[in-house]
Simulated scan of single mutants.
Amino acid sequence: MEGFLWPKYKDLRRMTAGFMGMAVAIILFGWIIGVLGCCWDRGLMQYVAGLLFLMGGTFCIISLCTCVAGINFELSRYPRYLYGLPDDISHGYGWSMFCAWGGLGLTLISGFFCTLAPSVQPVPRTNCPKSRPENGTVC
């Protein structure tokens, strides 16, 4: 009954890999949509790319949290001497976690700017004179 309530370490590793795979796929698709939106100057495509970046960032957050939970679960489960760590040294995550959180922040910032970009672009002006508006007439 213990495994029913709490995930095991293998389950946490599978969850991390699954969410990281989804995040990479969504961010790559967002890059493709974003580049096409910039080349064709389509505001809707840039907006969708931003939403994809934000969704990919959400999956990155989930995968990072499950990765940290798996590491903490594994280190708290077994005695310290099995890992060869002396009593006066604690474990750390190092540069890989710093780079992962930094990449997550950049993904979320790019998602924010991509969703903001269509609303700050100037509206093209037409040479149509503003006369009295009539129903159904278009310049």
Rank of each mutant, 00 (worst) to 15 (best):
M1C: 13
G3M: 05
L5F: 13
K8E: 07
Y9M: 11
K10F: 06
R14A: 08
R14S: 03
G21L: 04
A23T: 12
A25H: 11
I26N: 02
L36R: 14
W40T: 13
W40A: 12
D41Q: 14
R42W: 10
R42H: 11
G43I: 03
G43N: 02
Q46L: 15
L52N: 06
F53S: 01
M55W: 05
G56W: 02
G56C: 07
G57P: 04
G57C: 01
F59I: 00
I61P: 08
I62W: 12
I62A: 12
I62M: 14
S63A: 05
S63F: 06
L64G: 15
C65G: 08
C67W: 13
A69C: 07
G70Y: 03
F73N: 00
L75S: 04
L75E: 04
L75A: 02
R77I: 01
Y78G: 01
R80V: 05
Y83N: 09
Y83S: 15
G84P: 03
G84I: 03
L85V: 00
P86Q: 02
D87A: 08
I89W: 10
H91V: 00
H91L: 02
G92F: 06
G92S: 11
G94C: 00
W95S: 04
S96T: 03
M97P: 10
A100P: 05
W101S: 11
G102R: 01
G102K: 03
I109G: 08
S110G: 10
G111H: 12
F112G: 08
F113E: 05
A117E: 07
P118S: 01
S119V: 02
R125A: 15
R125V: 15
T126Q: 09
N127G: 13
N127F: 11
C128G: 10
P129A: 12
S131M: 12
S131N: 11
R132G: 12
N135Q: 15
N135Y: 15
N135M: 15
G136N: 05
C139S: 00
